[in-house]
Every structure is written in structure tokens, then in C-alpha cells.
Computed example of a mutant assay.
Amino acid sequence: SKTDVDDVVRVDEKKGEIWFTAAGMFNPYFTQLCRAKLDGSGMKIVTDSRFHHDTNLSPDAKYFLDVEQKPDVAPRTVLRDASTGKELAELAKSDVSKMDEAGFKKTELFSFTANDGKTQCWGTLQFPSDFDANKKYPVLLNLYAGPESGGISPRFGLPSPQTDLGFLVVSVAGRGTTSRGKAFRDAVYGKLGIVEIDDQADGVKSLFNRPYVDGNRVGLQGTSYGGYATIMGLLHRPDVFKVGCASSSVTDWRNYDTIYTERYMGLPWKEENEAGYDAGSALKLAGKLQGRLMLYFGSSDNNVHPSNTYQLVTALEKAGLRYDMQVGPDREHTQMNSRTMWEYFLKYLKP
């Protein structure tokens, strides 16, 4: 399958019918209400694939409530005929006049082709409220990027507050994440730190042809796997990323728990995937750091042990490279102080 079934909504054995939610044709992150025969035939998408839908099917399966929206279209709630999807009544519609008066810009969906030359990936782009297409803006990528993590948000909402610090804010759903089927997830197996990092970098890079995007001022930040992805972004793709803030980060998969690591990387033995572990090790790549890096760890982190950061710092110092670091005394698996992080980005990306 090229997509995932999100939920089984109803099974009607008498009619030989199943109702379920899954991605539609227009965008793999827009959930649709679907029905099919129990033998798999007669599949029909009941909702409009141009939107994301949160639906509630009536007990007799004759009607459903539908909240339809997408990142640049505010939600409205309608009652629909379940057999045809026809709108019967509009029950509620969002009033975004105050948002428009305040100058908030709507989120843009964009797509790009991954470096395998065939896989389409998606991202979102958010703008400052005083956006001027004649100016150049630095880019900030917020990421997690771990295998089987969520993709982009398909829902309408306010832009990130980071935009009004003068940044274009980006999110990218690369290979390995959910909603896109098995092959899309399998692409990262044995290659953590490479495939998903390339997708994040190539997603941002696909925006460089826009006149208001400053490709020389690109930052990224994340926590946990997002911290690892931040570090690997700077080390593996310095052509894109210049400044990073990494919190509670794995730095070598040999340092993390086996129930997670071996699920996605196999074993680190030479005869299995030692090369994959080495390729995805920030410790092995530390000497390639070119940009500015702020590290953070909590001294009581019992998920990603602080030794991950200690080992990376040792490797950076052996290579004679500069870094910045913040410590959270007695804090566990947490993010660095947000004020410190934004001061760092403001200093080195200079909106």
C-alpha cells in the first residue's frame, strides 16, 4: 500500500461493508473517510480529497459530521450524506477576520522530490506577519524526523511565534515518517542519520529559488531525535544548515537502547550493519562541523544519557572545533531554555 489506514470506523457484516479513514489522492496527510466491501472491492472515498477531514459517522451509517480544513483554509463543520458525501447543512464556519486584521499569514504547503529522484515529500512554510516578498529572510527548520514519527500538520492554525522574530519557519515530512505506507518507512532502515537528514535538507533547499529566502542563513532545532537530526544536519549537510540548537541528543546509535535502535538499524556487527552505525554517528563526523552549534543536555536524563553529549564534546575538542553548551542541572529529557535558544538564532542568523 502507498498509504496507511488510520482507523477502522465501522464494520457492517450484514452489508459486507467496512468504513475506515485513510489518506486521499491529493495529499497523503489529508485524512479521508472511505468505505469498501469486506473483500476489498468497491473502495470509495466519501470526502473531498482536497481537504483534511475529521469525521464522525452516525450509528446507522446514513450521515456523518465532517470538519474539513487544510493549512491555508480554516475549518468548517458540515453534515453530509454518507452514501454520496453530499453536503446537507453547514453547522459552523470559522471566523478568521481577527486573524486577518492582525496580519497573520496562512501556512503554505509545498512539495519536493527526494534525492532518490522519485519520492514526493511535503512540507509547510510559515511567514512573518509583516512579510515583504522584496526582503530576504532567514529560515528556521523545526524538526524531529525520527522513524515512524508524525508528518506535517494538515490542519489550519496560527503561524509559529518564531515567525515574528523575523524567520520563515519550515517543517518537512521526510521518508521514514508515518501515513505514507511501508515502502516510505522502509527507506530509512539501516540508514538513520542519512536518508531522513537528506530529506530535511532537500526540503529546505527546494525553497532557495524563491527570492525572499536567504539560503545562507538557515538554522534548525530539535529535541531528542530532533536533537540528533539537528547535529547530523550540520555535519552531513553543511551546504544547507549553518546554525543549530540540539537538545537531549543521541550522538551515536551504539549509545541508545537496543529495543529502539535495533528495530531500525539492525545489529552493529561488521557482518551486519556496522557501516550504517558509523555513517550515522555524529562522533565519527564531528571533525566536519562548519556551522555554529549549541548543545544541551539534562544532567538527570534517563532516556538519552548525558554521555552522548560528553562524547561529542570530546570529539569536537579533539578536532579543535568551537561549540556552545547549556546544561540543565537535575533536569531530565528536556529542551534547552527557549530564551537562550532564540537569542542564539537571533545572534547568528540576524533576521
Results as ranks from 00 to 15, higher is better:
56 N>R: 10
267 L>T: 09
314 T>R: 15
265 M>Y: 03
275 A>L: 06
94 S>Q: 09
253 W>T: 01
336 M>T: 07
212 Y>T: 10
169 V>K: 02
25 M>L: 12
205 K>D: 04
143 L>S: 12
316 L>P: 11
285 L>R: 02
155 R>W: 03
342 W>E: 12
52 H>A: 11
259 I>E: 10
40 G>A: 12
229 A>Y: 05
292 R>W: 02
67 V>T: 13
191 K>P: 00
302 N>V: 12
84 T>H: 10
174 G>R: 00
314 T>K: 15
120 Q>P: 06
83 S>G: 15
261 T>V: 14
281 S>N: 11
232 M>F: 06
52 H>N: 07
330 D>F: 13
241 F>I: 04
83 S>M: 11
338 S>W: 10
114 A>H: 12
80 R>W: 08
19 W>G: 00
12 D>G: 06
176 G>P: 00
32 Q>L: 08
41 S>V: 05
327 V>K: 07
306 P>M: 14
37 K>R: 15
52 H>G: 01
281 S>E: 02
193 G>W: 00
69 Q>V: 00
103 G>R: 14
311 Q>T: 09
24 G>V: 04
253 W>K: 00
14 K>F: 08
65 L>E: 05
191 K>N: 09
198 D>Y: 08
153 S>H: 03
58 S>V: 04
298 G>Q: 03
297 F>R: 03
253 W>R: 01
130 D>F: 05
273 N>Q: 07
57 L>H: 04
14 K>Q: 15
305 H>T: 11
98 K>S: 15
201 A>V: 13
39 D>L: 13
240 V>Y: 02
81 D>W: 07
54 D>V: 12
12 D>V: 08
245 C>L: 09
2 K>M: 09
211 P>H: 14
105 K>M: 07
3 T>W: 10
259 I>Y: 07
344 Y>R: 07
162 Q>A: 15
231 I>L: 06
196 E>N: 09
303 N>L: 15
57 L>Q: 02
91 L>W: 09
313 V>K: 07
142 N>P: 02
226 G>T: 14
68 E>T: 05
